[in-house]
């Protein structure tokens, strides 16, 4: 069993190693990137017209019926367990 009492030399050594390996590889977080205020993800800070606004859905009653199929069918299909049981297209009611 190693002595777990942290020694200042171990820490100082690790810090020195971290500085030498990361200071070069890491982009410095200096103010050299100007954040463009007002530019956010699409639709996040503007008035999003289209899907989800009051002009959408006026001719349909999509969400009245609840007639959707209750089976996942997206990218989960590409995630597989080692025995292939997960992410299957069949509804695994438990």
């Amino acid at each position: 069993m190693k002595n777990l009492n942290p020694s200042k030399l171990v820490i100082a050594g690790a810090i020195a190693a971290a500085i030498s390996s990361f200071a070069v590889a890491t982009p410095a977080f200096a103010a050299d990137v100007e954040k463009c205020y007002g530019v956010a993800l699409a639709g996040e800070n503007d008035c999003k017209a289209g899907a989800g606004t009051s002009c959408q859905g006026t001719s349909t009653v999509d969400f009245q019926a609840n007639a959707w199929k209750n089976v996942p069918a997206g990218t989960c299909e590409s995630i597989e367990n080692t025995d292939g049981t997960m992410g299957s297209l069949t509804d695994m009611k438990m």
Binding site: G43, E44, A51, G52, T53, S54, Q56, G57, T58, T60, V61, D62, F63, Q64
Partner: peptide, 18 residues
Amino acid sequence: FDVYRNNVMASLVEALKA
């Protein structure tokens, strides 16, 4: 009323999706 109800639900579904 259904149209209004549908719009409320559709907009919230879109918000969750986003």
